[in-house]
């Protein structure tokens, strides 16, 4: 059992990891074809994995309905929404699912008039949360918070026309904050992230990091 759960996955990780690392340096057509094939495998696996996701979602909400947990009525909307989407998707504007996807069907209508506005509504909440988070952060209780507050005020005012009216040096000062201290911090984080990502990749390729297989190390 350990052979199937440990040895084979670790061997695959090693072979594919080394192969794809070297593939980056080989521009030959054979190498590019290999990349295409592996990418296609990924897409195919992801396609099948959708069924696992759908099963998990349905199973979770079906159990909620069955056990009548508080708020179980909301779970019925999962089946209702999924049901009509699947029906209109398969109906495909009268052309049915064996033909290419048709434009302007009920399926599209539901996407553009239900899902997109609902997503936009969630996104719009961000503006309010940003204000509340900013209020909490900008209470200048510590030295760092004070610096953050001053920098934020300069950048915010420097990015709007009224900033230049208040003080002509505000826009260039805001640009300087963004392009020098902000950029320096960003690049510092990026260098750390890149080295960390390479080290993590090597740990996985050489089988040192095994926690992703489950069951600790």
């Amino acid at each position: 059992m350990n052979f199937f759960k440990r040895t084979i996955p670790l061997t695959i990780a090693f072979i594919m990891g080394v192969m794809m690392a070297f593939q980056y340096y080989v521009p030959h057509e054979a190498s590019q074809s290999l990349l295409k094939v592996v990418t296609r495998w990924g897409i195919t696996i992801a396609g099948f994995a959708v069924f696992i996701g759908v099963y998990s979602l349905f199973h979770l909400h079906w159990n909620k309905i069955k056990r009548k947990v508080p708020g179980w009525g909301y779970s019925t909307f999962v089946f209702f929404g999924a049901g009509i989407t699947i029906i209109f998707g398969l109906y495909n504007g009268g052309e049915f699912f064996l033909n290419d996807k048709q434009e302007g069907t009920m399926f599209d209508w539901m996407y553009f008039n239900v899902q997109v506005p609902a997503g936009a509504t969630m996104f719009s909440i961000l503006a309010f949360f940003m204000a509340s988070a900013a209020y909490r952060t900008f209470r200048a209780r510590t030295g760092e918070a004070t610096i953050l507050l001053i920098a934020a005020v300069i950048v915010m005012l420097g990015r709007v026309p009224v900033g230049a009216l208040i003080w002509e040096y505000l826009p260039p000062l805001a640009d300087w904050i963004m392009s020098v201290p902000n950029m320096a911090a960003k690049r510092g984080i990026l260098i750390g992230v890149s080295i960390g990502a390479i080290a993590t990749s090597l740990r996985i390729i050489f089988g040192i990091e095994r926690a992703y297989l489950g069951g600790g190390d």
Partner: peptide, 27 residues
């Protein structure tokens, strides 16, 4: 969905390692 499958497996194995496989709930 792939992260879901991996996470389920990882959590299940972790419960097993902690000696509490009965406490694992797939949902």
């Amino acid at each position: 969905p792939i992260v879901l499958s991996v996470s389920q497996e990882v959590v299940k194995e972790s419960y097993l390692e902690a000696g509490r496989p009965d406490a694992y709930v797939e949902d």
